[in-house]
Simulated assay, not measured.
Amino acid sequence: MNATTHRAPTWGADPYADALRSGRGPLFLRRADGWLLPLEVERWCGGTDAADRSALRRCKGGVLDIGCGPGRLVAALAAQGRRALGIDVSEAAVARTAAIGGSALCRSVFDPLPDEGHWGTALLLDGNIGIGGDPRALLLRTAELLAPRGTLIVETTAADVDERVEVQVDGGSGAAGGFFPWARVGTPALLRYAAEAGWAPAESWSVPAPPDQRPDSAERRFVALRRRTRAAVPRSRGPAARADSTSADRANSPAVSSSQRARKSSPGRPVTDV
């Protein structure tokens, strides 16, 4: 991450793991003031929808799904014979990804990862631009992971927001684990952070969402980014542990199918009282 010290994410807390194992909520991110951000567990644990497929059609080369959750995107790519790897900090997420035919590692995006600098596409869908609570730091890190002509596909909130919050995972009957940083950004904010981190917009689009999936929003929104040419991309300032050679060796071993998210928020739903 950047120079700021970030606390370890707590997506491994029981409510999140339990929700992924059952394939259903309720599940929320709870702010310190008690407001709740509903999470779309049923959608994540289902098959790909039209919006997901619109992003997958734009993927080129090997695909890295950052904060893969229960693995629907990784599994869909694998079923097409595509090379894809998911990463998630939740062992339950990685295990479910493996169970449906995907490959995943239980690892943070800020840890050493296989094939850094060679991925053709990286995905930050389902609100995963919020990982770590610092969109600029996350965009800098993804620049290190992708090949020079690689593409980063980001899902943004439907609302024009730019907020950083401290949250806990909540299963509907109380929060579990400590607070961790999270962010929510709309397309205008994403483009500002992207410009600062050496990215240029290549395409933006939206896909209508079924009302039963997202009653708060009529669409899901996406932006494809590519690294600017003829410009040095700033390097992220991650923890010293990321340069540890032993960890790097482990990261470059083949993906295991036993299982980042400081994961997942609903990209378009505002934090609301419940």
Score class of each variant (00 low, 15 high):
residue 9 P to Q: 14
residue 9 P to A: 14
residue 12 G to C: 02
residue 16 Y to M: 06
residue 17 A to R: 07
residue 18 D to S: 14
residue 18 D to V: 10
residue 22 S to Y: 13
residue 24 R to E: 10
residue 35 W to P: 01
residue 36 L to G: 05
residue 38 P to Y: 15
residue 42 E to M: 04
residue 48 T to N: 09
residue 50 A to T: 00
residue 55 A to H: 07
residue 55 A to T: 01
residue 62 G to C: 03
residue 65 D to H: 11
residue 70 P to K: 14
residue 75 A to H: 15
residue 78 A to F: 12
residue 82 R to S: 03
residue 87 I to F: 09
residue 88 D to F: 12
residue 91 E to R: 12
residue 91 E to W: 08
residue 92 A to Q: 09
residue 95 A to M: 02
residue 97 T to W: 13
residue 97 T to P: 07
residue 100 I to T: 01
residue 104 A to S: 05
residue 109 V to L: 03
residue 114 P to G: 00
residue 115 D to K: 05
residue 119 W to S: 00
residue 119 W to R: 01
residue 125 L to H: 08
residue 135 P to K: 07
residue 136 R to E: 08
residue 139 L to H: 06
residue 142 T to C: 04
residue 146 L to K: 02
residue 148 P to W: 07
residue 149 R to I: 01
residue 152 L to N: 03
residue 154 V to P: 01
residue 155 E to Q: 09
residue 155 E to A: 01
residue 160 D to I: 02
residue 163 E to P: 14
residue 164 R to H: 12
residue 167 V to G: 04
residue 168 Q to R: 15
residue 171 G to W: 15
residue 174 G to M: 14
residue 177 G to E: 14
residue 178 G to A: 15
residue 178 G to L: 10
residue 184 R to E: 05
residue 185 V to C: 05
residue 191 L to A: 02
residue 197 A to D: 02
residue 197 A to R: 03
residue 198 G to C: 01
residue 202 A to R: 12
residue 205 W to T: 00
residue 207 V to H: 12
residue 208 P to S: 12
residue 208 P to K: 12
residue 214 R to F: 15
residue 216 D to G: 12
residue 223 V to P: 00
residue 226 R to S: 03
residue 233 V to H: 06
residue 241 A to Y: 09
residue 243 A to S: 12
residue 246 T to K: 08
residue 248 A to H: 10
residue 249 D to C: 00
residue 260 Q to Y: 14
residue 266 S to G: 06
residue 268 G to P: 00
residue 273 D to C: 04
residue 274 V to T: 02
